[in-house]
Simulated scan of single mutants.
Amino acid sequence: MNWETLKLDIMDTGVSVLTFNRPDTMNSVNDQFCFDVQAVCKVISENDAVKVIVITGAGKGWSSGGDISMLASIEDPISAKATYDAAGELVKAIYELKKPVIAALNGVVAGASIAACLACDLIIASEKARMGFTFMQLAFCPDSGTSHFLIQKVGYHKALELLWFGKILNAEEAEKLGLLNKVVPHEECLPEAIRWAEKLAQQPLMTVGLDKKLLREAAKNNFYQQTELEAMYQVLAWSSDDFKEGCEAFAEKRRPVFKNR
């Protein structure tokens, strides 16, 4: 399935690979790109054959952020607000996916696209990947949710260091800061992300989804609120057919076959 700026490949395993497909511009973000990402996320959400999503980029980069030619052509504050709102909606579309999302970070990610990357649930990075916090070079603030994700990942002081000095992190540095999960040889980036996705697709996906909700709520809940939420979600998990299958498989010393219900 193809859009003007994207490709979507749906595999028999339940894994889908979404490719940002503007390689001539390092997959930079323009209005059409924002529209296409929102449209494809809607398709993904409504397609039961899609269990896990992997997002990668065509060419040498994952996404370089906002298309500079588009940003430079903005003529008034109203148009500027509409442009940045559209980028925010792109990130929201990825963040709001209830299914697991894995970024296969095959190269450079910079600017607003860092937010799109950090909105994913897991991040596998090529050894050639770079994270560019390059807003300051354009006298820009972080946008599209970058500051939200960044302060949760690295804290206030390190976040300001990255932003104020326009840091460009290599993959190993980003991993040490907790900005991604794993660094692999370049040629293994997408295959490893797909392996993780295929493994996830075999898990009880109802529980996977509940875990995703729990950890997001944990960032704002206190201990008492979070334990109450855990108890409620655990009752939901306990009520599922997959829990019964897990118990039976454990007793019978076999691998469980989950049906996601």
Rank of each mutant, 00 (worst) to 15 (best):
T5Y: 08
K7P: 01
K7C: 07
K7E: 14
L8V: 13
D9Y: 15
I10Q: 11
M11C: 04
D12R: 13
S16Y: 02
F20C: 07
N21Y: 08
R22C: 12
P23D: 13
T25P: 06
M26R: 05
M26W: 04
M26L: 15
N30A: 11
N30L: 01
N30W: 08
Q32T: 14
F35A: 13
V37L: 12
Q38I: 10
Q38P: 02
Q38C: 15
A39K: 07
A39Y: 03
V40T: 12
V40G: 05
C41R: 01
N47L: 10
D48P: 01
V50C: 13
I55C: 09
S63V: 01
G65M: 05
D67Q: 06
D67S: 07
L71W: 03
D76F: 05
P77E: 13
A82S: 14
A87G: 05
A87E: 14
E89T: 06
E89C: 11
E89W: 08
K92Y: 08
E96P: 02
P100F: 03
P100H: 03
A103I: 10
A104W: 03
L105D: 05
G107H: 09
G107R: 07
V108F: 09
A110F: 04
A112R: 04
A112T: 10
I114R: 00
C117P: 00
C117N: 01
L118M: 08
C120G: 04
I123F: 02
I123D: 00
I124T: 03
S126G: 06
S126N: 09
E127S: 15
R130P: 02
F133N: 00
A139K: 11
A139D: 15
A139C: 13
F140L: 14
C141T: 15
C141V: 09
C141M: 09
C141Q: 14
P142C: 03
S144E: 05
S144A: 15
S147E: 12
F149I: 06
I151R: 04
I151F: 03
Q152A: 03
Q152C: 07
K153S: 10
G155H: 08
Y156N: 05
H157Y: 09
A159M: 02
L163K: 06
L163P: 00
W164K: 13
K167R: 11
I168E: 11
K176D: 04
L177I: 04
L177P: 04
L179V: 05
L180K: 01
N181C: 11
V183A: 01
P185I: 08
H186I: 11
E188G: 04
L190Y: 00
P191R: 10
P191M: 12
P191F: 12
E192L: 03
A193Q: 04
W196I: 07
A197H: 04
A197I: 09
Q202G: 07
L205V: 08
D211E: 11
K212H: 03
L215Y: 14
L215H: 14
A219E: 11
N222A: 08
F223I: 14
Q225I: 06
T227V: 12
E228N: 15
E228C: 07
M232E: 14
M232P: 02
L236A: 13
D242N: 07
K244N: 15
E245Y: 03
A249R: 00
A249Q: 06
E252K: 11
E252N: 13
R255Q: 13
